[in-house]
Design a protein around this nucleic acid. Sequence first.
DNA 1: GCGAAATGCGACAGTGGTGTCGCAGAATGG
DNA 2: CCATTCTGCGACACCACTGTCGCATTTCGC
Lengths: 169, 169
Amino acid sequence: MLDAAAAVWAHDFSASLSSIALRADVSRSTLHRYFTDRQALIDALLLDSLARLETADDGSATAVPAMETLEHFLRAGVEMGDRVIFLFADPKRFEGNPHWSSDDGDEEMRALVDRARAEGAIGAGIPTSWALNLYYALLYTAAEVSNQDLPRHVAADLAVQSFRRSVAP
Amino acid sequence: MLDAAAAVWAHDFSASLSSIALRADVSRSTLHRYFTDRQALIDALLLDSLARLETADDGSATAVPAMETLEHFLRAGVEMGDRVIFLFADPKRFEGNPHWSSDDGDEEMRALVDRARAEGAIGAGIPTSWALNLYYALLYTAAEVSNQDLPRHVAADLAVQSFRRSVAP
DNA sequence: GCGAAATGCGACAGTGGTGTCGCAGAATGG
DNA sequence: CCATTCTGCGACACCACTGTCGCATTTCGC
């Protein structure tokens, strides 16, 4: 059901619960039996997606260059496909949600970008806010393209390449 | 009213007509008086936005390098802000809409990208579908960022730079 | 095979957005 | 100044989605 919700909501967050039940091959009753609320399903999917992101992000020690961490994170994100689209399609989607700390969304990433800049991987002419938005856009786009034409890893490679080139000094 | 619709729908296409009326500082009645339908408003906004895009795109003769046309078009799009977000946030939003020819959405752009590739501005390792999706993502992101931190022209510059670097051979 | 748990189905009221009215109060222009 | 036009307000029925329920059916474990 979470997969179905991610798949459907990745493209239209206002989609009805019926469409999700249909996609999940269960009745609406069953869906409601596991998630009392629309909000409950959102929270469950959010939590699950964040957990996967966390897991996927495990291999990134702080010792390695920040740029490699960003790259690793990007690849992991693309691998998650719809989940990542769900998470990052609209930055304000989860505003006020107790499970969505601003740490997840921004602070940690901003710090990473700043570190990458300090390490010389990001040019002085690149504002941090642009680097961040570009990063999420590439993540989103690569995940999106993976649903259409290109194999997942190819899309990930292209996204990584685009990011490196775009922010290079 | 069209401006209000663009501003609201740029962030949430499922937003109610009430919220648009509110944003436009008119009553819901007045809104309905000018646009009988939700669909009528959508069509009007679509048509108006496409017209602006067309106008803004006037300066691009086919004689100049394709890359410059793409660049010009990108800058013009960023300048349009919410209108462009409305148009390109979801590629399938206007599927089946008689005013949304696939020419606008894809074919013309694809041809432009192919021409840029022939002129050596786009590397062989860059799939056309990636270049296109990247292009729209940058357009969208630059417009989005313009609503937050950076001045419009700075965001446009960054988007252009990112695109050139990303697809360079 | 039998009992328990899970699922599907249909019905229900509640809710919020939609589209349509009529009417009353501006705003506009001659 | 008056007449025409535009606008706002409130009311209405309609519809899709939501959340809840009871009951029949299927599935699963033992």
